[in-house]
Design a binder for these strands. Sequence first.
DNA 1: GGTAGACCTGGACGC
DNA 2: GCGTCCAGGTCTACC
Length: 297
Amino acid sequence: MGTRLNIGAPSDYRLARDVCSYGYFRLAPDRWDVDSQSLRTTFDLDDGPARAHIVEHDRGKLRVWFDRSLSHAEQRTARAYIRRMLRLNESQEDIAAFHSVDPRWKSSGRGRIFRSPTLFQDMVRTITSCNVTWKSTQNMNRRLCDVLGRAGAFPRPLRLARARAGTLRGRCRVGYRDRRLIELARLFASGQIDEQWLEDPEHPDEQVYRFLLKLPGIGPYAASNIMQLLGRYSRLAVDTELMRHGREVLGFAGTESEVIAQLQAHYEPFGKHRFRSYWFEMWTAYEAKHGPACQWQ
DNA sequence: GGTAGACCTGGACGC
DNA sequence: GCGTCCAGGTCTACC
């Protein structure tokens, strides 16, 4: 008999809208179940992997079923993972503050952007999304889980830190990212990356950004994206998607640096919420083209 | 400080 | 089926 957890969420939380808000919901081990409009994933917990099925039970109430019994310590860890993934730390007031700056998303309620259960997983996912098509990103993450994860869960830092570069390259198909991922995993495994320090609002964005830039495999785009994954939305993550959005959706023209300048000016009024304004603008354009993300197969 | 080219995978395309 | 080209962000060597 498995464990069932009830998890309280802000009353404005909507599982389908807020999970299907960022591409990571389609990366292993996460899987959105279109039929039941619920999230399935696997966590690597202290006593072993556990499959989780997260459903919206009622307004502001989530229910999670696990395929095995969890100890109390494991339940605490699983709750923390789920709260992080779903951004349940962002209150209704936080989202209202965003909507007061950018009212375009007030009626839909958009504001939370899905992320991973751990910062390590967010960083690995970001690195595997660099310099490749989305299909390759999906393949890399699936293989990392299949080859190095326990029962299909995402590998923990220590497991990745001890992996051989040849395994990552040959079996996980991460290419030149092999050594960079191992170095990053070693930094996590040895406690040299302090998530609390990175999230502490006392530390200015610029300081955190500079720290991230020094990490292996992380350049300007990845660092900016990790900033938003840390809940710091003031920076735009400049990649080809942003450039395409600027040219095709917003109609900006000129050289790359000229388009970037126009994008910076366009999002300037949204201040510390710049990334969210950009992201939901682009996500809305995606959905207009491909249908609601919660229906994507 | 700025820039060119290498690093890889996987898809598209031509033969 | 095979070879070639290209997209994609980071890193390093070089100016």
